[in-house]
Nucleic acid binder design. Sequence first.
DNA 1: TTGAAAGCGCTAACAA
DNA 2: TTGTTAGCGCTTTCAA
Lengths: 329, 329
Amino acid sequence: MNIHDVAKKSGLSVVTVSRVINNSPSVREANRQKVLKAMEELNYQPNSAAQSLVRGRTGVIGMSITNFNDSFYDRVIRVVNRKLAEQGYFLALSIAENEGEGDNFLFQKDRVDGIILLSPIEEEQYVAELKRKRIPFVLLDNQFSHDDVSSVLVDNYQGGYDATKHLIELGHTRIAYIGGPSVFLSVAERRRGYIQALADAGLSSFAIEYSGFTVSSGYEIARKWIRDDTLPTAIFAGDDFIALGVVQALREEGIMVPHDISVVGFDDQQFVAEFFPRLTTVRQPEAQLGSIGVDLLLKHINGEMAEPTVTKLAPQLLVRESTAYVKRT
Amino acid sequence: MNIHDVAKKSGLSVVTVSRVINNSPSVREANRQKVLKAMEELNYQPNSAAQSLVRGRTGVIGMSITNFNDSFYDRVIRVVNRKLAEQGYFLALSIAENEGEGDNFLFQKDRVDGIILLSPIEEEQYVAELKRKRIPFVLLDNQFSHDDVSSVLVDNYQGGYDATKHLIELGHTRIAYIGGPSVFLSVAERRRGYIQALADAGLSSFAIEYSGFTVSSGYEIARKWIRDDTLPTAIFAGDDFIALGVVQALREEGIMVPHDISVVGFDDQQFVAEFFPRLTTVRQPEAQLGSIGVDLLLKHINGEMAEPTVTKLAPQLLVRESTAYVKRT
DNA sequence: TTGAAAGCGCTAACAA
DNA sequence: TTGTTAGCGCTTTCAA
């Protein structure tokens, strides 16, 4: 079942059939109809391997993800998928487990026209591999800076600054930061924003802790503070899950958020948004992230890109119900 | 940069190069080394479009997913990915948004060798399309039964039965069920198991509610029960998120789980597992689901499958801390 | 507006 | 063990 069968059935040549497939204008309308009819009757679909081979492009963009249980990623994926579809591309996702190089089948020039790396784990290694293979790619939410690579990331410093400033404006002076694993650049950047906002207000850090990006680790840290009687009046958690754990621990002790203690999270996780009090958090602009990433990648692919670009996006503070003016003492 | 370049550089023919690429034994070791060296130096990778074209297969299996924010899916994806890799296949994921037919680029015979549909939304439509295109496929966690289609699903009836029986064995007689959206077969099946377990014990249903698969809807339902003073002593929630919402609502009123009320969930969501009390839940056997699904699909692809098979997997009740003996009154 | 011919990069007979 | 030849299914000159 190939283009020749269609040609035979429609009484025209394969070239004409190909023209119809590719919407070439130079086909007599009557003939176009004949071809369309034959294609329909034969239930014909062009072979995409053959098309890719001769065209030298696949129309597929690959995206490598590490985790399918996170609403930040979910949102980015959806935007990228939609945006690519608008441009006539398809999105193929692959999960990057901690394997060695080369296990990612997308990393072949002829399988995809380009690649998007979302929050890559083994970033350096991936970047090196893609450079060597000369596959166009962009980085989204990456950890390191590279020469000659376009990337889009969120200004985590700004996010940390805004979150902390918000707490300061509410009159808090005893403000603590709980970050995720300290290896992440984003964690360090948010911390830097936190410190700077404090400094700008003539304050200093009350406490800094690092934990996993999980509810339970936030819970544990809050419990420790309670045990040691070293609670701050406001907490900037570098992740919504951590923040939620903190709120839970406090509530168990009858400490009310935001009445007694204010808490700010990060990421606006869909799941966390369902809890009370609704968490004040910093939302990463997933739509922009995905959209700009796609634009950059397609420009690279089309050679419209002279220099690689690094775009830093401003996050958005969403003030909800978990923050309030500091309690008068 | 193609096989001819490698042939030229190594002083051998393209056929020999091809043999090296495909690990054919009939190549003199010295020549194999020459070819390998040339490939290395030229940084050569075979063109997969050309390979697919001539071989008539791609080595890629497609998987269609609806949601990337759920640990059940995450676990299934990981197992499938690993299992396929063992068999020399690659996994390409695509997100199914509620689009019309044909928008899913994976649904082309020459793009993939087979397809796995995980919890498909527009199931009937997808099945019809894949049948028409004669693409081998299997269904995982599907809603409907089809002729001539292999599928693997979890015995939701059994899960509902086991969960309810567990509560009965703890002495509960006033047991309520909260299901997800009633359109889902899984929701109806769990309900059926719940009803049957009650019947087998000479009991009848205390209350049945339907909600979304969300924390907030579980929360709302529990609040309603509290307001109306119609609380059961045990609740079987057809979803961990719902169960978590219930627990939160109860706790806010000082009603302790499991001391006052027992709660069972479903799915063993990773995120929910971090809360206290650790939820008694029904775990779907993701590893089996993925593994058997892959086996079935590969058999279909290799024509080793006479008849389509429907496999029903037993879920596993995980008794943790949210269930206890009914309070003496 | 149409079609004949060449070729994309590879593998699978078949011969040597 | 190696190489020659003929395609896989499609698109793209080029000429008519």
